[in-house]
């Protein structure tokens, strides 16, 4: 786990990140000098009230938006300076992303949704389906393989989205309020499945949540306030 003064290269690091949206009038500074590091295999919760900048921080670290100022490094490589093509390849092969609503493709079955990232990466259809089935099994939704997202419960859909995020064997998964739309039991099932699977595969997770019971699944917590990290809590 990370600790202050650790000199090893982190999996992912954001330094003094700044990001503003809008023009001169009504300009919102979402990030104001936020810094964090995520080590390989670590599960880090980023918490804070609405508007504290936690989702913008996730987007910057995942290479979805570029910060205005500061640096994002992935295994020592400057992510914020990469050309779009390389960044997009990195996102596809090294990162997995899950949002509050799973963003599954409604026309596709659960199996096809999970197989999709593999097909995009050039894996054969048969092999992609086999691997997708295995990941649905790990998340306890193998029985829903042939269902479309609209035919599943919220918890099942979200577990399918997690299977899709992990099917390519990413080094880091970015989860933005992954249980935000679920009741507490479904939330528990989703978080237990995510954490167990990530621990098994050594995947790091950056978990953005406003829910402290969800944050308690992580190894440590970073609190955000007004676009910066308010309190770093280092835990064994």
């Amino acid at each position: 786990m990370s600790s202050k003064g650790d000199t090893s290269v982190p999996l992912l690091e954001g330094r003094d990140l700044g990001k503003a949206y809008g023009r001169a009038h009504g300009r919102t500074e979402a990030l104001r000098g936020a810094s964090l590091r995520l080590d390989a295999g670590e599960i880090l919760a980023v918490t804070g009230t609405s508007g504290s900048g936690k989702s913008t921080l996730l987007h910057c670290l995942a290479g979805i938006v570029r910060p205005d100022t500061g640096a994002v490094s992935y295994r020592g490589e400057r992510l914020d300076q990469l050309p779009e093509k390389r960044l997009s390849e990195l996102r596809r092969t090294e990162f997995g992303v899950v949002f509050q609503f799973g963003q599954l493709i409604p026309e596709l079955t659960a199996l096809d949704n999970v197989a999709l990232p593999l097909l995009l990466a050039g894996v054969s259809r048969a092999q992609a389906h086999t691997r997708a089935g295995e990941w649905l099994e790990r998340f306890g939704v193998r029985g829903q393989s042939e269902l479309r997202p609209g035919e599943m419960s919220g918890g099942q859909a979200q577990r399918t989205a997690l299977a899709r995020a992990l099917v390519t064997g990413p080094k880091a998964v970015f989860a933005d309020e992954p249980t935000g739309a679920l009741d507490s039991l479904a939330s528990e099932q989703v978080m237990t499945a995510l954490v167990h699977t990530a621990r098994e595969s050594g995947t790091a997770i950056l978990l953005v949540t406003h829910d402290t019971q969800v944050a308690a699944y992580a190894d440590r917590e970073l609190r955000m306030a007004d676009g910066a990290v308010a309190g770093a809590e280092v835990t064994a």
Partner: peptide, 20 residues
């Protein structure tokens, strides 16, 4: 309050590990 929060979170992590 920050220190108390950290202690609460640490206990919540322990309990989460126990129940899962």
């Amino acid at each position: 309050l920050r220190a108390q929060r950290a202690a609460h979170m640490a206990r919540m992590r322990e309990l989460t590990a126990v129940k899962t």
